[in-house]
């Protein structure tokens, strides 16, 4: 497996030095446990900055679990444990003195179900800045406006900012959640199947948004939709749990174009061509 990985990385990036400089997250030998159950094993990969990385694989292969390692959301589930290192800009996020609360401000997350708070659109977007001490009305107004603009939602909601976030359509709600996260200016945006619960037109809008955002934010997306992974991502990681009850692992990681056209691993090819999963 390690062979596959080094091969694909070296092929994808002839200029290794330049590549090194733009690595945002470095994962080394990561194992993940739910109590005694080893869910993920031996994961090593580099997530590039200002790019979209897609995690694909059959249901239950641990790709969402892996995604939630990057903002330590798994800490909230009792009995979970991470072994190995995850470096964000060179700093171990599982280091003993790292505050997960501060980490989550830098690593934002979008969930499968749009989950705006039952409060106004304005308050939804202002939630993060207020948490982190922004109090002045004019500052908040600016942040709310900029964030909604970056999430391509401003035009639709600029006159109804005091209306409840839950009155919006599913796709708008998801973009509201993106605006809410952008308001705290994260470096990394984790998206856990962000499009699987919304209508096709909205999916298009969110995919366009990802393309716009990636110049400033590193995006990692978990998706079940192979076409989506091919459309939006620069790099793709394929995860697989080969035997029930055994840990899942990273089968192949590389440039999306290569993974989808000439995968190195037979299992990747089988999955992409729809032979299983």
């Amino acid at each position: 497996m390690t062979d596959t990985l080094s091969q694909s990385t070296s092929q994808a990036a002839p200029d290794v030095v330049a590549e090194e400089a733009t690595v945002k997250i470095r994962v080394r030998d990561l194992d993940f446990y739910y109590d005694d159950f080893n869910a993920l094993t031996g994961i090593t990969c580099d997530i590039k900055a200002q790019a979209v990385t897609a995690f694909i694989g059959p249901s239950g292969c641990g790709k969402s679990t892996f995604l939630r390692c990057f903002n330590r959301m798994n800490d909230l589930i009792p009995g979970t444990r991470v072994v190995g290192t995850v470096l964000l800009d060179g700093q171990d996020i599982y280091g003993p003195d790292v505050d997960p609360v501060d980490l989550r401000r830098r690593v934002g997350m979008i969930f499968q179900q749009p989950n705006p708070f039952p409060m106004s659109i304005y308050d939804n977007v202002a939630y993060g800045p207020r948490l982190h001490g922004v109090k002045k009305k004019s500052d908040l107004d600016d942040i709310v406006k900029t964030s909604l603009k970056r999430a391509n939602l401003w035009k639709e909601v600029k006159d109804i900012l005091d209306r409840g976030g839950l009155t919006l359509s599913g796709g708008q709600q998801q973009r509201l959640c993106i605006a809410r996260v952008l308001a705290v200016q994260p470096d990394v945006l984790l998206m856990d199947e962000p499009c699987s619960a919304i209508d096709p037109t909205s999916v298009q809008k969110i995919e366009d948004l990802m393309a716009e955002l990636k110049s400033t934010v590193t995006i990692i997306i978990v998706t079940h939709n192979m076409q989506q992974a091919a459309r939006v991502s620069d790099d793709t990681a394929f995860f697989l749990q080969e035997v029930m009850g055994e840990p899942a692992h990273l089968v192949e990681f590389g440039r999306t174009a290569e993974i989808f056209t000439s995968p190195k691993d037979k299992r990747t090819e089988d999955y992409i061509t729809g032979r299983f999963g």
Binding site: M109, N115, Y127
Partner: peptide
């Protein structure tokens, strides 16, 4: 989850 993920 949304609130925790926002760093609350």
């Amino acid at each position: 989850e949304a609130s925790y993920a926002m760093g609350a």
